[in-house]
Design a protein around this nucleic acid. Structure first.
Lengths: 196, 196
DNA sequence: GACAATGTATACCGATCGGTTTATCTTGAT
DNA sequence: ATCAAGATAAACCGATCGGTATACATTGTC
């Protein structure tokens, strides 16, 4: 059984990833300050010593979680972006369609980077930088798509779509109600208006 | 000098308001969990006993601060809304103009209700309710103005403007950079498109 | 079977948290 | 001048925080 355990261990994520994923779900649900390291190590099934071996401070773990957040997002986006048979416009609308569903999920608690900035703004530069990088990356993705729609006004279109996405996210986080209007249709209108 | 002190005391806000205002600025800058009651009482120039007389728990103070946040916002909005010589459209654009300046301010840290929801979602019902009420109130104000522009589609127009406002707020909070596009012009475009 | 490495469990640390209590001082009304 | 009210300052409380240190169990390698 030792051998089989080893085989599994090679496939299952290492402890470091376990910790990040446990912290990720706890931070998202309960916030950063409100989540203690004891709870994280308990949920990760890992001792405190191991946790502090991989992450010398809690803030280091937070930075790692924010990076993980982007990687998870990236994996999802790549599934959409790699579809060769779809136009950039359709890809964008697909992103908005999925986002609309997320926002209606009872377990949606807003963008982790926005929440982190609300708790650590002016307090921890590394965390702030992570958040800023995340948002810049988000709009870069959108811009890479809007370039195919209207290369001359790609920046403007990407930014307008981004504002729509962020606005809906914030509103959904607070009001927790279903969107009173069709977000994807809104995105489609904006794209329509910027299509030459 | 005792008499002059008394005279001033009658005009200056009572201790309760001092506490709320001190907590307001601290919560906005440093977040809720990260701000201890000791710092609040120190900044308010008030003893701990007095603070706990007016607010039995810290969460009670947070709710009061969120209500205060709405009242401050309301006072500002009333200055705009009461101008009889301006159209509702101009009033909306004025709101967006001011918002754009706020967002570029170095001391802007996002919407307090959004930040509070990020820290207390699923933890404190009273705080959550305060945040939800705040957002509902915001969109109600917008709807009261869009009714004058297009009564048939007032809800839709108000919501679109609200999404724009919230989206810009979130983006500004994280990226801390100047808006790359003219937000008021965007609002104007939206209104234009919904004007019959 | 021995050994070093690694992980776990847990006790512990000082600091700080939200909140209470006590003791002192100021104040306004009589 | 006195006295009760209400404020302050500060000690204090138990709990929890992030983080460290210790003791024990498990593991792969030789």
């Amino acid at each position: 059984m030792v051998r089989s355990k080893n085989g599994e261990a090679a496939l299952e994520p290492p402890k470091k990833l376990q910790i990040i994923e446990a912290a990720f779900s706890l931070f998202r649900k309960n916030g950063f300050y409100a989540t203690g390291v004891d709870l994280i190590m308990q949920k990760a099934g890992v001792s405190k010593r191991t946790l502090y071996k991989y992450f010398p401070t809690k803030n280091d773990l937070i930075v790692a979680v924010l990076n993980h957040y982007r990687i998870v997002y990236e994996k999802y986006l790549n599934q959409i972006l790699k579809q060769k048979d779809k136009t950039s416009r359709r890809k964008i609308l697909e992103i908005f369609d999925d986002a609309e569903q997320w926002f209606e999920d009872i377990n949606f608690h807003g963008c982790l980077a926005v929440n982190a900035m609300g708790e650590f703004s002016g307090k921890n530069q590394a965390i702030e930088d992570s958040c800023i990088r995340f948002k810049r990356w988000e709009i870069d993705i959108l811009r890479s798509l809007t370039k195919d729609i209207n290369s001359a006004r790609a920046d403007e279109l990407a930014y307008k779509l981004f504002v729509l996405l962020e606005g809906m996210s914030s509103i959904a986080q607070v009001t927790k109600g279903a969107c009173p209007f069709d977000m994807t249709a809104m995105a489609n209108e904006i794209i329509e208006r910027h299509t030459p």
